[in-house]
Design a protein around this nucleic acid. Sequence first.
RNA 1: GGGCAGUUGGCGCAGCGGUAGCGCGUCCGCCUCACACGCGGAAGGUCACAGGUUCAAAUCCUGUACUGCCCACCA
Length: 903
Amino acid sequence: MLPKAYEPQEVEKKLVDKWQQAKLFAAHIDKNKKPFVIVIPPPNITGALHMGHASTNTLQDVLIRAHRMFGEDAYWVPGTDHGGIATQNVIEKKLAKEEHKSRHDLGREAFVQTVWDWYNDCGNAIFNQFRKMGWSLDLSDILFTMDEKRAQAVYECFRRLWEKKYIYRGKRLINWCVRCSTALSDIEVEHEQHAGKLWYLRYKGEDGSDGIVIATTRPETIYADAAIAVNPKDERYKNMVGKKVIIPLANRAIPIIADEAVELGFGTGALKITPAHDATDYEVGQRHNLPIMTVINDKGKMINCPEKYLGMDRDLCRQQTVKDLEAAGLLVKEEKYNNAVSTCYRCHNTIEPFMSEQWFVKMDELAKPAIKAAESGELRFHPESWKTPFVNWLKNLQDWCISRQIWWGHRIPVWYCRHCSQNGLTFATDQQGHEQLTKVSFEDGAKPIVSYHKPEKCPVCGGHDLVQDPDVLDTWFSSALWPMSVFGWPEKTPEMEHFYPTSVMVTGYEILYLWVARMVMMGLEFTGKLPFTDVYLNGIVRDRHGQKMSKSKGNVIDPLDMTAKYGTDAVRFSLLMQAVPSKDIPYSEDSITGARNFCNKIYNASRFILMNMEGIQGPLAMPKDITELADRWILDRYTHAIKTAREGIEKYNLALTANTLYHFLWGDFCDWYVELAKQRFQTADKEKVMALCVNILYGTLKALHPLIPFITEEIAASLRPYVGEKEEFLLNQAYPQFDPKLTDKEAVSKMALLQGVIGQIRTIRSQFNVPPALKITAVLSAKTQEELDVLKAYENYITLMAKVGDLRIGVNMEKPKQTATAVYENITIYVPLTGLIDFDKERKRLEKNLSLAKANIASREARLAQENFLKHAPQEQVEKTREELAAAKLALAQVTASLEDLA
RNA sequence: GGGCAGUUGGCGCAGCGGUAGCGCGUCCGCCUCACACGCGGAAGGUCACAGGUUCAAAUCCUGUACUGCCCACCA
């Protein structure tokens, strides 16, 4: 005998091996089939799988498996991402913790090797997690954003954009992370509200006057001030524009200028302009041709300032400056102020706007086709509400800063001749005694040679002393090419030919701009085609209260712990039941138990059916001559469930698919069909019932297979002989189809009547504490011949499901003594309960029903009294209302009669 | 400051023109020979608020109030 409860662990282990060994998920170009392709958002090689991965990859897996079963050439491309800054940070932390070393202690080459070693270990860990989750990825061929093929694609992209002059070198104010010591692009900067202060400082006039008071949140930058700006419309300062004031502590004179950028209402209306340390100020500076003076260096230390503060950390300098200003009597006041602080999206340290020469990609031309694709609807978003933000973002794009001053990543494929570029190259000796190129300046004469490999010699002077640009590319630069590079682009490979463009990109909305937008732009630029036609934005998995999961909050749920405890299918299904596009998923262990219970229900229903298969020879075809009401009904429910399940997948509403199949299998199939079938096990009908049971169950398992692959595969294997299926894997079988011939409105309405009557009897039983085993008497009084026929024809349904021993059915039946009364539509139900009836209870029950009936009558009558309703509403609706009124009136009459009897 | 979501029984959500559903929780009764990870039953909601459109609104429109998210150079 099989165990009572489903035990997933062994089953999962066994099936994962089987699937992988059978190479079930490998790419196989089949030109006769329509390709359905998803490239995985490659997880960073930074560590463990989290709930977010579990969610997004499960969604992709469901889509891939389902489309495969729909008969398409489905292929899910596996891979991982080198994850630039994030990975470098992880390794640096590890080095510091385990060996008390910094990357500089190792040197560039050794450090990069360390990361590669890490990749080789961690990569395997990631694949093992992929296996455990049952994701249909071919794990024998995992791609990596830094492997040779992908590196070639990155180079080719760089070269082509360079030749088109889209890639250029420029000196400007960029976002600098002092902690990560690198430049960042605009979207890698996050804005956080910090409780800070606003200081009011006095800049005295050069002529000895009181000068002007400004408000600032960054007093440490006063040493870099180039001007004071006021709004040209500001009457208060009109006569001061053009005069000079003295920077406190620095004692340097700067002019007062007028610029529209200054808000009249904020602070004092006067703004200090510090072009080197603030983006707005930089623009103002450009407009007024102000000098740029940098006082904070790339390490966050003070430079070019009064000697006292030289080398001081920027934060400390702020405190000291405020103290000194106060002592000098130049601090007018200090206010509490919440301001938006820019922080690094990787380490959350405060970003320093920093003047620097960097590599950029010119975006305006690249954005145009992407905007068009989104606006025209060629690129579809699920949900659609992301289309507008997407387009708006593209329309307001700044050029993309792609150079990073870190070591881990694709090295910029640009070389310099030490002879020809000597004035633009700065070298330093590192801790290993190697001379390293640390800084490149085109302004000072560096001449780029774009090449993947080190060029043989300088094309200008023929010199052999060539050095590579020290920077690496933004990790998103290689990610942007992912949907092409995975197929071998720029080569014209058969994979590129067949699988590109891909079908759908499934990812979180938090990387819509960082990643999705860039893939779209690059895809259009290099192939003329969108890299995918659909974008499915999935929500973020949060804790039960909607809080983001984080280690510091201690609310993290580890998907692998959960799969070990409840089974992978349960974890998958729990996520899918809540998978509405773009909607965040509140998640807790409780979410999983419900899904686990469902898996157990499937298991037990199957176990029961298999038990009753003993002695029956398969295969059993789906019977053709269906006459029994329950059979007609369940086939209608089944085919509708299949229809909705399929629609859910096609419309990216997997919650709909999951919930539909859940309720069909549990509510319709188990609670009603199988229960009713039990009484036919002893009859000549048995084989037909079993044929229906096994075929419907098998079909439902197929429909569920993309969602919960393990348990369905396991059970299907046992059922296969009974349905005559030869194919070993569900994935290679066809997804069930909606069959209009199985729909049966009449059966559904008859069944609803019986279910309603049974429900009323069950309620009475329960309310009067009738012992469950006790068979009771029930009298059903119908109003029409039609109803009578249904009740009579299926009285065995009622006796079984409501445990009725003596069932009397007729038209206008007499009300028995000491009876409980209920009304369902036009049927009056009497349950005589001599000795069991509690008159008080029954009176209360009836009174409740009485007021309900009255309310129903009132509302229907009111509606029917409106001439406009009769005139405008569809006839069907009017008819329905009339029927409802009649039923309510009947209920009122019956309940009133019963109440009178009680009195 | 701009934009986008959300506001439905104790909790988490679905429904998105015909008058409320699900899961969990609660309460009552059951170890009914597939399943107590179960079975049967019950209680519990004027669908945030105010207007409007319509014969009819949780469902469409407008506004308000909260909540969350995204974007933005107010020092």
